[in-house]
Design a protein around this nucleic acid. Sequence first.
DNA 1: TTATTACATTTGTACCTACAATTGTAGTAA
DNA 2: TTACTACAATTGTAGGTACAAATGTAATAA
Lengths: 151, 151
Amino acid sequence: MSIESEIKSTIELNINTKTVINILYTSKFIEDSFVTDLKPFDLSSQQYNVLRILRGQKGNPANLSTLQERMIDKSSNTTRLVDKLIQKDLAKRQICEANRRKVEIFITNKGLDLLKQLDPITEQKNKQLINKLSQEDLKIFNRILDTIRTR
Amino acid sequence: MSIESEIKSTIELNINTKTVINILYTSKFIEDSFVTDLKPFDLSSQQYNVLRILRGQKGNPANLSTLQERMIDKSSNTTRLVDKLIQKDLAKRQICEANRRKVEIFITNKGLDLLKQLDPITEQKNKQLINKLSQEDLKIFNRILDTIRTR
DNA sequence: TTATTACATTTGTACCTACAATTGTAGTAA
DNA sequence: TTACTACAATTGTAGGTACAAATGTAATAA
């Protein structure tokens, strides 16, 4: 369905406005879908994002600023987000001895197990969303997104 | 910058995952930019969205379910969102006499004036984000987004 | 050493969001 | 009429987010 029908716009949108709304709207659509998938696992999409970054560290710790830098949604309170993961025993935290201002955050085995459970679900979802598109379309599409973020 | 560099991914992402992350990330990028623009006007992006829908009604009232249906972010509490607009005298509300379960929401003149102030800013922002793209790219891009939202 | 400044994270707090429960209204059927 | 169901919006409340202020640590310079 076209974005105009989707938001039932009563007025004619110019192409710039339409395109911006389309990105925002489609992103919410995807986000909602992931939230639904993660709900049974009692995990928010932000928490999931952090867990995956921690796994990407391959045993090396991440500190808070690293997490913030890599998160999709940079605006949230990373300290309290990590608190939640620690409460659930999905991550652990220790003070960095080399620089006591920093904190070192690791994923636990329980965290790794949870991600292992979620991997096929996420894979499946990503595939379902994307595999209607040709390789050529994907190339163009990603290039356009990268361009939009460039000043 | 490519999305992998942007989120400083340490692992190789498959094309589906990469594309999904790219949409989410770019959408947050745009959202943040709008939030910054709206901040001096003490308006959240959700409130702005509702105001624009109300204006689109061209004098006709909207009820809550209409607003919810048309909003970009459908998940928020529309009652309290509208409360905020009423507090600021940007909207007014009355009970629908034909069906007293419904409520009729209108934009006020103050609301219209505020939108008039914001129009050029939004226009400018949308243009800045989008006008690096050719007409052909825009056509492909919007088609792809519409496709992604299709099951 | 003692200030001074910068850095990294945490905390306080007001506001916002999610979602279930509740309220009030309308439609329908016995 | 009464009971039942559906609808539309509101409210309660737990939890999340934004952002400024505070805390604790490190680096640098006088």
